[in-house]
Design a binder for these strands. Sequence first.
RNA 1: GCGAGGGUGGCGGAACCGGCAGACGCGCGGGUCUUAGAAGCCCGUUCCGAAAGGAGUGCGGGUUCGACUCCCGCCCCUCGCACCA
Length: 862
Amino acid sequence: MTRKYDFKTIESRWQDHWTALRLFSAGRRPHLPKFYALVMFPYPSGTLHVGHGRNYIIGDALARYKMMKGFDVLTPMGWDAFGLPAENAAIEAARREGQAIHPRDYTLGNVRVMKTQIGAWGVGYDWEREIASCHPGYYKWTQWLFLKLLENKLAYKKQAPVNWCPGCQTVLANEQVEEDGTCDRCSTAVVPKNLEQWYFRITRYAERLLDDLDKLEDWPERVLTMQEAWIGRSEGAEIVFRVTGTEETLKVFTTRADTLFGVTFVVVAPEHPIVAKLAARLPEGDRTRVSDFVSRCRAQKSIQRTAAGDKEGVSLGATVTHPLSGEQVALWTADYALMDFGTGAVMGVPAHDQRDFLFARKYGFPVKIVIQPQGAPLDAATMDRAFEEGGVQVRSGEFDALPNDFGRSKITAALAAKDAGGPVVTFRLRDWLISRQRYWGAPIPIVNCPNCGAVPVPEEDLPVLLPHAADFRPRGQSPLAAVTEWVNTRCPRCEDPARRETDTMDTFVDSAWYFLRYISPRSTDRIYDTEQVNHWLPVDQYIGGAEHATKHLIYSRFITKFLYDIEFADFEEPFAKLFAQGLICADAHKCPEHGWVPAAEVAEGRHSCGQTVMTELHKMSKSKRNGVGPEELIAEYGADTVRLYTLFIGPPERDAIWNTKDIIGAHRFLYRVWETVQEALPRLSPPGAGTAEGLPEEIRAVRRKVHQTIRKVTEEIEGGFKFNTAVAAVMEMVNELKRVTAWEAGGGALREACETLVLLLAPFVPHMAEELWEHLGHTGTIFERPWPAFDPAVAAEEEIEVPVQVNGKVRSRVRVPAGATDEEVRAAAMRDGKVQEALAGRVPLKVIVVPRRMVNFVIPGP
RNA sequence: GCGAGGGUGGCGGAACCGGCAGACGCGCGGGUCUUAGAAGCCCGUUCCGAAAGGAGUGCGGGUUCGACUCCCGCCCCUCGCACCA
């Protein structure tokens, strides 16, 4: 009597078993080398769909594989639990039902649901280390980090124009503003606003963040390039121009100091402080013209930058003195000069910079050529675009005739000698704005005192607790400002009445260090146990979405480097390897009347309201309503099937298309595996009996396949998590196994095949693997069994099939012993009937034998 | 515009240090079992062709005995960056 594949019973049984066993508790097998497998912790947004599942399943398969490979695995999970959506949900509920859900309740409710979902997938974590960034025990240390940064002059406050979102009623970081100048959450047009804000001085780490990218060999190339571009190092020169007739000097930044003699004007950003100073000296009409222009730019800037479009500017009615030639050139302000890059001032070289060229043509500045290319020389009168390539210096005084690369360093040196500038490196990376005028975040641990200014809350007074009761409707300042009993406090320094800082921190601060907290999740007297952190970190494998390339991943690297600097860590990079998995897409349906509608409401291209829907492929998301829930699928096919399909769907680093109907394939396969093992059970040799000598070819062939499959699956996992092809390899093996007709004498080989099959599948379909492993007569969990090893001698082919080409076309195939010499292979090919026919008596001009691969006869004529 | 990745059957995808294109799965067709259906199981399934054979990896060229794979020139899709001086 064989047992049925009752996945429901099996799955709940083993999930309970793993919990009882504490299978995922790190440090359970401390004699083994450590492996820290980390999946990015999620924002608890509600319910998970199968797209989220991919992340967890990949991580879980890896963790289980590593256990079998003999590692003490740490695989923790937690919640990035602060953030706007919880607050928005509270506000939304208040508006709809007249009763607000507290962000904490909303968040914790979501956590409960998601935790259950993760468990149902059979994904295991060391839940004893669970953390939530909104827990006071956690954010105490986020605040501590803030104080440490402040202490090291890496946190500071400044009044600055910020991106203000009228929809969310808060400032946004540069990264949260979309290209078109809208908020990345609510798509409202962002407006500039002047506010006093807290920043982290990440720019001080720019050079190291860039240089150390070289150490991250196992990061995807695209993420490295994105970070490189984001940090944006550019080497150039600062050049000082005197503003004629004033004491003012003006610094410009350029990467093309070689073109200095081609300057025919200088422009500054509209926000540049010199604009107001010079405008004040202008006659009324001109002054208004300048201030109108400036305010227009300010408004326009964050709404829509005229990317590479029409450039506008206005004269500041002043000239500046060329530092080397002494020439006078006009000083203007223009919208294409950016205040937050370089010095906010640009030297205009129309002949050699396309933007300057367009500007000059528009406003009539001369074009002065100072670099001439080899061959056809340029003519200022007729050129229709700037010449930006290399050449030879001309009309550049003593630098004439130098190649411009050389001229560049010579001119820079000459400036330095005259104290009028010198070499300088600038970065595109900006300091990190961390203030948020919202409730649901970690309070910034600062007290603003009328006498002492901004005073840090003493470490022993942490955490600064977020008051529970608050009206979180945004009103342009943090909701905390209205909680008077919380805001009003005493200055820690002078004890006079003072007010707390009412802004909270950007949630990216919370997530910039969570991977360290897992090591000592309940530590109350220090951020973590340094010794333990140095044992477990860096993370051996980090898994998550590539969308975090320039935010979370840079911030985490920055914080880690800072902790290294203050001797809280002996490593500088937190994540040794990074795997960026692709997203799952599915059809999304848009009804002209109801917008995005779930697939369940769509039949035959029509929404339930009768309207024809538009269907297109999108990443699974709440907003597109195309997320597929795991529950029904798990109920129908089991978690193992859903896991297997998810892994099989395609190359994990690429986006994939979810097709629920394809799941049946994974299910059928598992069913076959089950049946195969059940049917084999009565014929098996006892465990550990080994395989007999002198087996028939049919059995030897199966053993060969088994060992080849071990090799293949291992290589596919190790070489980049290619679970899709690893699963395919196991499917092939099962297909072959099913073909065997006579197992007599093969009891040992059959046991080897079944055990290998179950072991190889264990990381992918852990419940079934555990169950079958037990049926095969074993006790204890399969995840403490070693991963199978392959025997190259068994895996080696005895006989191979070699295709035979005549003039590059395959005409036949011959079977030869694996060790056959080229000559033997050639002879065998020559004897083949079909080859004879194709040769038709002609003598080959040439015979190419590629060992084990191919024979090609080259014959003359058609 | 710049950078990265990609384009292979009806579909998802394999193979790519140059050597059997289409592994594996879905779907589809046929068969078997069944009172019937579903699920299984077996066979087939790139296209054209009755077959022999021919064509075929986005398009056009090239190198080679041999090209999905390498080189040159294009087209299209996805993502990232984009007035960064």
